[in-house]
Lab assay of single mutants.
Amino acid sequence: MSIQHFRVALIPFFAAFCLPVFAHPETLVKVKDAEDQLGARVGYIELDLNSGKILESFRPEERFPMMSTFKVLLCGAVLSRVDAGQEQLGRRIHYSQNDLVEYSPVTEKHLTDGMTVRELCSAAITMSDNTAANLLLTTIGGPKELTAFLHNMGDHVTRLDRWEPELNEAIPNDERDTTMPAAMATTLRKLLTGELLTLASRQQLIDWMEADKVAGPLLRSALPAGWFIADKSGAGERGSRGIIAALGPDGKPSRIVVIYTTGSQATMDERNRQIAEIGASLIKHW
């Protein structure tokens, strides 16, 4: 067993022997301040990774656009098919120029040779490549099948209805392509620590998230040296922004954090800054 596999296998073990965790309302004060600064709703939840206990939450059962955070769930569904012998990570998928959609920095470079399922998941999570996500959605049967996968996990809230990039439209009061912070946090925890996926697939999923290259201005910008984070960000229309993450000190994750916002007129930089400040408060009061 590799060191990384050992780390993920012992996530519940280490967490069980940690000192009790206590909620700190100071972080919620910052979440509410972010709402004021952005002029928009902000949803927040913080779960203990081992027990699933909610440590703090704000608007945990209000719907927010998922945006690209759905790509972690998508690759979880792909990995479940791999575990069941219905898919192979090494299978190569070929596609054409007509398949390319807006923001496809990886797939646009491989029109000639195609990409493997493993490479597509890596591109979808680490670079948020939209064509990679659409190609992977095709392998599982489309958005409705991802929703069905989530329902089978016990998540009857999260739903995907459309493809990239239309799913980022974020129309107010439109339930399409949305989740709730509580539902997303619980589902992410199941994917990373539950028995739904094999140990190898859980490790692969967290490795992809740990290698995320496009979430630097968010929670990662607030992390002290030595902290662990595996995350996936999302951005959408109407001032929408979000991030889902597993993080913790001492090089291992111990909490799940989900943050979503929508309806702001603020710039992307300002949305990023507010999420980073929430992260800084979380870490300060850990």
Rank of each mutant, 00 (worst) to 15 (best):
E46K: 10
L196K: 15
Q204Y: 09
R162F: 03
R271V: 10
D212S: 07
F22Y: 10
S221E: 10
D269L: 12
F228H: 06
G234L: 01
F13H: 06
V106I: 14
A215N: 05
I206M: 14
I93D: 02
G194D: 13
A9V: 09
L38K: 06
K32A: 14
L120T: 04
I229V: 10
I11Q: 05
I11M: 11
T179G: 01
P224T: 06
A170T: 08
E195T: 12
F6C: 10
K30Q: 09
F17T: 12
R92T: 11
L19E: 08
N134L: 02
A132S: 08
L146A: 06
A124K: 00
I171P: 08
L19C: 15
Y103S: 05
L223I: 12
P143N: 04
R189S: 13
G194R: 09
P249S: 08
D36P: 05
F13D: 01
R255S: 03
D174L: 04
H5W: 05
T179Y: 00
W208G: 02
R189A: 13
A245F: 03
A222S: 14
Q265W: 10
L38M: 11
I3S: 10
E237F: 09
I244S: 03
P172V: 12
A215P: 05
M66V: 14
A148G: 14
N134H: 04
A77E: 09
M1D: 01
F13W: 11
N134F: 03
K284N: 12
V21F: 06
L100T: 07
G216R: 08
L219R: 03
T69R: 00
G154K: 07
K32T: 09
E35P: 01
D48G: 06
R241Q: 04
L223R: 05
A200G: 14
D212R: 04
E195S: 12
S96Q: 12
T186R: 14
G251F: 08
N272V: 04
L135A: 06
Y95Q: 02
M268Q: 08
G43W: 00
L146D: 00
W286L: 04
V72N: 01
F149L: 08
A16V: 15
K71N: 00
G114Y: 05
L150G: 05
P172W: 09
D250N: 15
H285L: 09
F70L: 05
E102A: 13
T187Q: 05
G279I: 04
E210F: 10
I54T: 12
D250G: 13
P20L: 03
F13R: 02
R41A: 10
E145D: 11
I93C: 06
C75G: 09
N50S: 13
N134G: 03
Y44H: 03
L247S: 02
E46C: 07
R241K: 06
G114P: 03
P217N: 11
